[in-house]
């Protein structure tokens, strides 16, 4: 039984959709169930996902030139890896544009700390319960969130020197 099937069996109500594209198993889950599922992933012996390898977000504003409509603007993407069983799983959580907020995973994986700060910095998604949610790559004076699709890629906010 693959990790995807195992999670789907346990949390059939919380899973929105699943797909396997080019061998990457992906689960889309409800934001409210994130904490529970993450705990399950980490603490179930047959899954044993001890690595939170990567955490990022994707902005689907005007995706594919507007041809593909997404219900929610953002998706937070988690990549898990299990050292013992050598398998991977991707979990996605849809996030609404109006109240971009997800539960933090810092209490389960220490690596979530900086990743979540980066997602806050770049996408403006808040993580409920994060101990130190402040900007990490950009400076505090920076206005807006750079990786959002509506932030122009060359809009500069210099600290010193001429503005251009």
């Amino acid at each position: 039984m693959t990790p995807l099937q195992r999670v789907q069996e346990q949390f059939s109500k919380e899973v929105i959709e699943t797909h396997t594209f080019r061998g990457d198993e992906t689960l889309m889950i409800h934001p409210s169930a994130l904490k529970v599922i993450a705990k399950f992933l980490k603490e179930t012996a047959e899954l044993d996902f001890n690595f939170l390898m990567d955490l990022t977000a994707v902005d689907y504003l005007f995706f594919a030139g507007g041809r593909i409509q997404k219900e929610f603007r953002f998706e937070v993407v988690y990549h898990f890896y299990s050292l013992k069983h050598n398998h991977r799983l991707r979990i996605k959580v849809p996030v609404d544009e109006k109240s971009p907020e997800v539960d933090t995973l810092t209490d389960l994986w220490a690596s979530a700390d900086w990743y979540e700060r980066e997602v806050w910095d770049m996408f403006g998604i808040r993580f409920k319960g994060h101990p130190n949610l402040k900007r990490i790559l950009m400076y505090e004076q920076f206005q807006g969130h750079a990786l959002r699709k509506d932030y122009p890629f060359n809009k500069r906010q210099p600290l010193i020197g001429p503005k251009y």
Binding site: M122, I136, L137, M138, Y139, A146, L147, F153
Partner: peptide
Amino acid sequence: IGYLHRAFEK
């Protein structure tokens, strides 16, 4: 960190 942020992803 962030002193060499060059916006690779953007």
